[in-house]
Simulated scan of single mutants.
Amino acid sequence: MAIQVSQAYAQDGWFRRFVQKTISDTTGEGKSSFRVYPTLGYAPETSVEVGLSSLLLFQAKGDTLNRLSEVAAFTFVTLEGQYGIWLDNAIYGDKDKWFFLGRTRFQRFPLLYYGIGHTTPEAEPALIDANYLLFRQRVLRRIRPNFFIGPEVDYQQLYNAKFKQPEGHFYDEPKGSQGTLNIGLGAAVVYDNRHNVLNVRKGLFGELSFLKYNRSLASDYNFQGFNLDVRSSHPLTRRNVLAWQIYGNFFTGNVPFNQMALMGGEMIMRGYYYGRYRDKNMLATQVEHRWLPFGFSKRFGGAVFAGAAVVGPKIGSLTPARARLSGGVGLRYLLFPKKDIFLRLDVGFTKDGPGFYLFTGEAF
């Protein structure tokens, strides 16, 4: 979502008790924690949006030596009749024997289409109104300390799709704009020594994965791709963290428009609409400085961040001269003190204007 703003205004009576229970971290060490809280948002493509978010935090067998696992869910509905359910999981087994990393999406939501490539028209985008279903899961087995490997599956379906041209401009309809279903099978190799995936104060995460989509697997298109994600966090002081990320998607074959490398969103290149620029290949990087929390506060912190990304039809076309830039600032609120989890409100600035994001946990 472009904007999500949590409603947590304490009032007398039951509502105040509900809010206090929602934001208070009263669980003991090693105990699971579950929170549900309402959200209110606005975006140009959705009008007013209301939703409900939930977050489950736990450690396998209640052992504080095990890593903190998280399952986050978000459901929303808008005044335009759009709706959706999101689910993200990062679940570690006892002593890291298994690692389940994935996301699920179902939504009826408009997709703005600006074209393909690093230069797209300044005209109004086309609108692809469709149902969208995504299921992507890695089932990883630890083979050495902090080192995991395992199979990966990716199911993506766009259906009941309608491509709507804007007034005064005509777009060539891309592959998949009338609906598409693709199933990818592959494998992922992951190095991960983080202890808290939602707020990494020190640690390294690196993933290299390969997925192949083939008509023999009931896919509409034949294509394949590599995905690269490297994240590193470095404590400067007890409260200060410097983090950086390198992220890349590299596809070949007949790639449908919705599964191309997409620039923008709440994770990287904040401020750009997710998919504002798209192509078969993308390379992006970002750096962020976090105060968790500020020295003068027990609950409030902040962040500054900057990023650059480039898309292109071939790896050789990913040159610095074609890169787009973004940057921004953020406010943090310590939502779960005993588990060191912050609520983040980020404002990203780009040449297209600002974008606002409110989520539980850091962007990367």
Score class of each variant (00 low, 15 high):
Phe135Cys: 10
Glu173Arg: 12
Gly117Leu: 03
Ala243Cys: 04
Trp291Tyr: 03
Thr119Trp: 10
Ile3Lys: 15
Tyr221Ile: 09
Thr78Val: 00
Asn66Ala: 02
Val139Glu: 10
Gly186Trp: 01
Leu65Ile: 15
Ile91Val: 02
Val329Lys: 13
Lys202Asn: 06
Leu55Lys: 06
Tyr357Asn: 08
Gly248Thr: 00
Tyr213Gln: 01
Glu49Lys: 11
His195Pro: 13
Thr252Met: 04
Phe359Trp: 14
Leu198Thr: 05
Tyr113Met: 01
Gly253Asp: 00
Val329Asp: 08
Phe250Pro: 08
Phe18Gln: 08
Gln20Lys: 14
Gly348Phe: 01
Tyr9Phe: 12
Ile85Cys: 10
Gly225Gln: 07
Arg194Ser: 01
Glu80Met: 09
Arg201Gln: 08
Val190Asp: 07
Leu236Asn: 07
Leu57Gly: 01
Ser6Ile: 14
Leu211Thr: 12
Phe99Val: 00
Ile128Gln: 05
Arg324Glu: 02
Glu80Thr: 09
Ala306Met: 01
Tyr191Gln: 06
Arg215Pro: 04
Arg324Gln: 09
Pro337Cys: 02
Gln286Leu: 06
Glu122Tyr: 13
Leu140Glu: 03
Val48Asn: 12
Phe336Glu: 07
Lys162Phe: 07
Arg299Asp: 04
Ala123Met: 11
Phe226Ser: 13
Met269Leu: 14
Arg239Gln: 12
Val310Cys: 08
Val77Cys: 10
Lys162Pro: 14
Tyr37Val: 08
Arg270Thr: 07
Gln286Val: 03
Ser32Glu: 12
Thr104Asn: 12
Met269Cys: 12
Phe364Ile: 03
Phe356Cys: 02
Asp94Ile: 01
Tyr132Lys: 14
Val153Lys: 05
Ile23Ser: 14
Pro293Ser: 00
Ala363Gln: 04
Thr78Gly: 00
Ile341Val: 13
Tyr171Gln: 07
Tyr42Gln: 04
Ile183Arg: 15
Leu79Phe: 15
Met263Asp: 08
Asn227His: 11
Gly355Lys: 08
Phe349Ile: 10
Tyr247Gln: 07
Gly248Asp: 04
Leu56Ile: 09
Arg324Thr: 05
Ser32Asn: 14
Ile116Trp: 08
Asp129Asn: 10
Asn258Glu: 15
Lys339Arg: 14
Ala130His: 06
Ser297Met: 03
Leu325Ala: 14
Leu292Ser: 04
Trp86Val: 13
Gly179Phe: 06
Ile246Ser: 07
Leu242Phe: 12
Pro235Ser: 05
Leu55Ala: 09
Tyr42Phe: 11
Lys280Glu: 03
Gly93Asp: 02
Asp279Thr: 07
Thr119Arg: 15
Phe148Val: 00
Gln165Asn: 03
Arg238Cys: 01
Ile85Ser: 12
Tyr272Glu: 05
Gly206Lys: 13
Pro337Leu: 00
Gly203Leu: 02
Lys97Glu: 05
Arg322Thr: 10
Ile149Ala: 10
Ala218Gln: 12
Thr119Val: 06
Met263Cys: 04
Phe251Trp: 07
Gln107Arg: 15
Ala284Gly: 03
Val287Ser: 09
Tyr83Asp: 00
Thr46Ala: 09
Glu207His: 06
Pro174Thr: 03
Thr75Asp: 09
Gly28Cys: 00
Phe226Lys: 14
Pro174Asp: 07
Ala10Ser: 14
Gly348Leu: 01
Tyr273Thr: 06
Asn249Arg: 14
Thr27Gly: 07
Gln7Asn: 15
Leu334Pro: 11
Arg231Ile: 11
Met282Cys: 12
Phe223Asp: 06
Ser297His: 02
Asp192Val: 06
Pro166Leu: 04
Ser47Trp: 13
Ser209Leu: 07
Val189Gly: 05
Glu167Val: 04
Tyr221Trp: 03
Met282Ile: 15
Val241Arg: 10
